[in-house]
Write a protein that binds this DNA or RNA. Structure first.
Length: 886
RNA sequence: GCCGAAGUGGUGAAAUUGGUAUACACGCAUGACUCAAAAUCAUGUGAGGGCAACCUCGUGUGGGUUCGAGUCCCACCUUCGGCACCA
């Protein structure tokens, strides 16, 4: 009976399925005295291509942990489902005429079959599918909660819209408008990313992906649904602190949120020939440089542009605006080789020094950030510097680096440059006598240098001599006292663009009556998609749903006419909460029972790719916080520990792709070597987070290891247990190697570093060791099979059964290790002279320092090396080494 | 340009966190079994020198700290991620 992975794997997969081995008990039946463990995989989008070898990498890691935790006596939740709404399926439908629903079902069947063939311990009874009405009913329900809530700034939390304090003396229309302006889900008119090829708008984080695929994205003004995630910016930022997430993902989220503190400053406008009552507000993170602001720049879209532009400049400004509007975002940002802009003819008054400074417009200033206008400080900002040099605008230095402080003082004494540092804390006496300060000033004024760092203020009147952080505080106080500005915070984060002009997504539970919106009641959910013949975009920028008259038009009994919202929700809607549905998948009264949520959440380990850093992972955190505020869940962070698996490259060391022909198909790998070999190899390749190339020779090695394991235990001619596996008490050497192995694997899984490569190495060391023995204790072999089982469950079930057990190995308790067997009783001591290794000796564990020193000095090779030299010092480290310094 | 991570044999990678560098595996070489091959088993395998015991060098490069550095500090080089007119 040779090791036949095909038969064994099929047999046990069938067993697990029919016995429901990995079913997690319903909440009522759950033994709550046991600790819980929720191991979650990022659920896949079921594409037509099926799994690639990258998918099972993270899945195998969570599977090992889950199986380990089950054996450790935890209640384990380890579910799987489908992120089933999405563009590729709809694109496929357009091409082939196959309904997305049918296509999705096919793809899911394929994925599910593949996942089962790898032997994952999922509880398939909890499978979810975001495109099924019973699931998206609750996605729509959460949308209604967002729509019917507002964010209370004072309490920093969401509350039901009914609690919104409404200003008195509003007309009915104003009242509705006010309420709408506070909803967490709202309709907004504005520029969005429009993809003509797909016929839909895209969220900011989706743009790069589609551009990579060769599609174009242009800016277009459209009325779209948005979610007010920006209200949660601070909480999303602070929440990161408590999470056990990779530092780089936290950093990406911090950057994406992009919280910046500074000040808004008001500049009065003086526009020749125009009414001069205008003023413009700018945002800056460096209000301390206000004396260096030598011009203002407005975004071309800024509402003040037309009001301040002088007659003689009107044509130039209009031309520029038109050009800027036509440019795509790509042209405006990525190809920003040379800055462009025009003068409006207007001047602003720098409130700090009263100077008149020109007002320019340029598309390097974004309308969507801050106030859409900036004060330019070309001496201390690279972008402003570029622009100033092109347009020959004044550059005026107002900050010096710390190292020039003392030189600046020298210049005051020589009285050449006038208004420099004369006060400030900690100013010390003169030091150098060189002209590095003068050179700095000259370089700045020439434009050949700019300085963005922090330092000390110069040329800045009441700020002179202050350090940057002190100056910022001082100037904000001054601005606020004079009512020309205030402290301000800005975020890069934008509200989440939440609608798509596509068919294959969740319909919005919203009716329109002219310009007024009405939400469906919860009882009317789910609002299902109409079955249609054609999914072709309408070409008008509307969703295909807009063409389905019978679905769109709704007339109520009292004769009112409504139109349904025809946009659908984005793919990231369903994935923002799916991990909650696994907890209570059949509940038709709530999206999840609160007691069940309280027990299972948060997710204890969440494994997936780092490409979801700012999309899925940010939106899930956002929705969780909203549900928390409204009292539907008891945790406000969903994922306690996050881990990103690395990419698996092709055998040639580059990214797998069809065009390169280096794609490895897991079905073929499983067929040839077995699921156990594949699981083992994917974990043996290296640490989980590392990017590493596939190797067919490598997986053959894993198969060899499993064959060796099989032959150690099973007599290949009879299929019985080999006669040298003996039912006897274990020997000392057996106890040592097995305890060491159990300890290594236990700690490797529990420490959360996901370095299973070293666990597998230890299993191999064990096997190599016991292969030397004439007979092996059966008890020792059983423990070995138990600790191997989470990695290669099929072969272990088979061996476990053949060794004489009835019950599945998956439910056996995890073996304990005893520290006394793990400790070595003799250690090898390194003997060195001047740090160079000269000999090694074996001594008893815990041999005293004195004895070690004596042994070293008696050692032949050491004597040879220190002969004729003076021994200066001897360093002895117990159980490690002796170093003799001569 | 800015931020982050990493550079160790022919290859994937280990290294108890400052104490024997290269565990484990792949590959390769030699041998055993075989008519032969595959499979399997055994032995060897960082580089250089020497018949040998042994010696010298060696963790991207150059410095430093230390009795002792893959590990700590400084500078540089390279690679991979992320951000990139966000004022």
């Amino acid at each position: 009976m040779k090791y036949n992975h095909l038969d064994i794997e099929k047999k046990w997969q069938k067993y697990w399925e029919t016995e429901k081995t990995f079913k997690t008990q319903e909440f009522e039946k759950l033994d709550k005295s046991k600790p819980k463990y929720y191991a979650l995989d990022m659920f896949p989008y079921p594409s037509g291509e099926g799994l690639h070898v990258g998918h099972p990498e993270g899945y195998t890691a969570t599977d090992i942990i889950s199986r380990f935790k089950i054996m450790k006596g935890f209640n384990v939740l380890h579910p799987m489902g489908w992120d089933a709404f999405g563009l590729p399926t709809e694109q496929f439908a357009l091409k082939t005429g196959i309904h997305p629903k049918i296509r999705t079902a096919e793809c899911i069947a394929k994925f599910k079959h593949q996942l089962k063939s790898i032997g994952f311990a999922y509880d398939w009874d909890r499978e979810v599918n975001t495109s099924e009405p019973e699931f998206f009913r609750w996605t729509q329900w959460i949308f209604l909660k967002l729509y019917n809530s507002y964010f209370d700034d004072a309490d920093q939390k969401a509350k039901p819209i009914g609690e919104l304090p409404i200003p008195e003396d509003l007309t009915e229309n104003q009242r509705i408008e006010f309420i709408n302006s506070q909803r967490l889900a709202y309709l907004a008119d504005g520029p969005v990313n429009w993809c003509p090829e797909l016929g839909t708008v895209l969220a900011n984080e989706e743009v790069a992906e589609q551009l990579e695929k060769g599609f174009s994205v242009v800016r277009k003004n459209m009325k779209q649904w948005k979610l007010r995630i920006t209200k949660y910016a601070d909480r999303l930022l602070e929440g990161l602190e408590s999470l056990d997430w990779p530092e780089n993902i936290k950093e990406i989220q911090r950057n994406w949120i992009g919280r910046k503190t500074g000040a808004n400053i008001i500049f009065r406008i003086k526009s020749p020939g125009q009414n001069t009552n205008h003023s413009i507000e700018v945002f800056t993170t460096r209000p301390d440089t206000i004396f260096g602001a030598t011009y203002l720049v407005l975004s071309p879209e800024h509402e003040m542009v037309d009001l301040i532009t002088t007659a003689d400049r009107k044509k130039g400004v209009d031309d520029y605006k038109l050009k800027a509007a036509k440019k795509s975002d790509l042209e405006r940002t990525e190809l920003a080789k040379e800055k462009t802009g025009v003068f409006t003819g207007a001047y602003a008054i720098n409130p700090a020094n009263g100077k008149e400074i020109p007002v320019m417009i340029s598309d390097y200033v974004l309308i969507s950030y801050g106030t859409g206008a900036i004060m330019s400080v070309p001496a201390h900002d690279g972008r402003d510097n570029d622009f100033a040099r092109i347009f020959n605008l004044e550059i005026f230095p107002v900050v010096i680096p710390v190292h020039l402080k003392d030189h600046a003082i020298k210049e005051i004494k020589s009285d050449e440059h006038g208004e420099l540092i004369i006060s400030g804390k900690g100013v010390s006496g003169l030091t150098g006598r060189d002209d590095s300060y003068l050179k700095y000033i000259e370089n700045i004024q020439r434009g050949s240098e700019y300085f963005e760092g922090e330092g000390y203020c110069i040329n800045s009147d009441f700020l002179n001599g202050l350090k940057t952080d002190e100056a910022i505080e001082r100037v904000i106080t001054w601005l606020e006292a004079n009512k020309i500005g205030s402290r301000a915070i800005n975020y890069k984060l934008r509200d989440w663009l939440f609608s798509r002009q596509r068919y294959w997504g969740e319909p919005f539970p919203i009716l329109h009556e002219n310009d007024t919106q009405f939400a469906l009641s919860e009882g009317e959910l789910p609002l299902e998609l109409p079955a249609v013949e054609s999914y072709h975009p309408t070409g008008t920028g509307e969703s295909p749903l807009a063409a389905i008259d019978w679905w769109v038009n709704v007339t109520t009994e009292d004769g009112r006419h409504f139109k349904r919202e025809t946009n659908t929700m984005p793919q990231l809607a369903g994935s923002s909460w799916y991990f909650l549905r696994y907890l209570d998948p059949d509940n038709n009264k709530e999206f999840c029972n609160p007691d069940i949520e309280k027990y299972w959440m948060p997710v204890d380990v969440y494994i997936g790719g780092s490409e979801h850093a700012v999309g899925h992972l940010l939106y899930s955190r956002f929705w969780m916080k909203v549900l928390f505020d409204l009292g539907y869940v008891s945790h406000d962070e969903p994922f306690r520990k996050l881990f990103n698996q690395g990419m698996i490259l092709g055998e040639d060391g580059v990214k797998m792709s069809k065009s390169r022909g280096n794609v490895i198909n897991p079905d073929e790998v499983i067929n040839e070597f077995g699921a156990d070999s594949m699981r083992l190899f994917e974990m043996f390749m290296g640490p989980l987070e590392a990017t590493k190339p596939w190797s067919t020779e490598g997986i053959a090695g894993m198969n060899r290891f499993l064959n060796r394991t099989w032959r150690l235990i099973i007599d290949e001619s009879s299929g019985e247990i080999k006669s040298n596996i003996v039912d006897r008490a274990p020997e000392e050497k057996e106890l040592k190697i097995i305890n060491k192995t159990i300890k290594k694997i236990t700690t490797d899984i529990e420490d959360g570093d996901m370095k299973f490569n070293t666990s597998i190495a230890q299993l191999m060391i064990f096997l190599n060791e016991v292969y030397k023995y004439d007979t092996i204790s059966k008890g020792i072999i059983e423990k070995f099979i138990l600790v191997l089982a989470p990695f290669t469950p099929h072969i272990c079930e088979e061996l476990w059964q053949r060794i004489g057990h009835q019950e599945s190995i998956s439910k056996q308790p995890w073996p304990h290790f005893e520290e006394k067997y793990v400790k070595e009783d003799s250690v090898v001591i390194a003997l060195s002279v001047n740090g160079k290794l000269r000999d090694k000796i074996e001594v008893e564990f815990n041999t005293s320092e004195n004895e070690l020193e004596q042994k070293a000095l008696d050692n032949e090779k050491i004597i040879k090396n220190i002969m004729g030299k003076e021994v200066k010092r001897i360093i002895v480290v117990k159980n490690r080494m002796v170093n003799i310094v001569v």
